[in-house]
Amino acid sequence: MIALFKRDIMLAFRSGGGFGLALSFFLIVVMFVPFGVGADLALLAIIAPGILWIGALLACLLSLDRIFQLDFEDGTLDVLATSPLPGEAITGAKAAAHWVTTGLPLTLAAAPLGYLLNLPSEAYFWLVASLLTGTPALSFIGSFGAAITVGVKRGGLLLSLLVLPLYIPTLIFGAQTVTRAATGQDPLSTWAMMTGLSLFAVAAMPLAAALALRVNLR
């Protein structure tokens, strides 16, 4: 399981795909917002929490189909399925690897990007905290969507349609946490709720993903 986890991370680094791609996408989304709404710093400060969360979420979405697709096509998944490793461990390890190569870098990149959007200084801690505990939910829920659509040719668009609605509660609590911090309210309650959601996703989604994967490998 740990070997699989390491292998996935190595592959993501070597192909240069997920890692740099998601970060560049995040940067571009954040850069586009002033182009779209104007460079008014006061306005940007108000919408910064939402933009940063939506940007991170979309950047995360971008690399989801890589979790299973390549291994499905070259038969690695069939080999893994016949190994003694339980399916839940496979999906869990792969989702965790996706988080390390996508969610974690996005979390680290969010603070400097927040500065570009004039995020109020009180909110930086909660921005990083909410992304740190919120992006695992994105990766694990996403891995479920990826497992469902792995057999569909050109399933990228379908994957987004299935996964984005599942992201709604995470996005609401995550962005609320940062907004509350930015406007001087207590962000702890929404952060705790989002983290609870994230823990639930980490615990439950590998089961659902393994279920879907078994159907697709039948």
């Binding site: 829920i141 479920f144 469902i148 057999g151 299935l162 609605p165 599942l166 709604i168 509660p169 609401i172 609590f173 609320q176 929404t190 709720m193 959601l197 659902a208 279920l211 879907a212 159907v215 697709n216 039948r218």
Partner: peptide, 26 residues
């Protein structure tokens, strides 16, 4: 396969639809 996958999606979706309902109230 379609029947299996959609029913899994329906079950997982129901959980998240319910969560969204309460998140939205918040």
């Amino acid at each position: 396969t379609a029947a299996d996958l959609t029913s899994i999606l329906c079950m997982v979706g129901s959980v998240f639809a319910l969560l969204s309902r309460y998140a939205v109230n918040f």
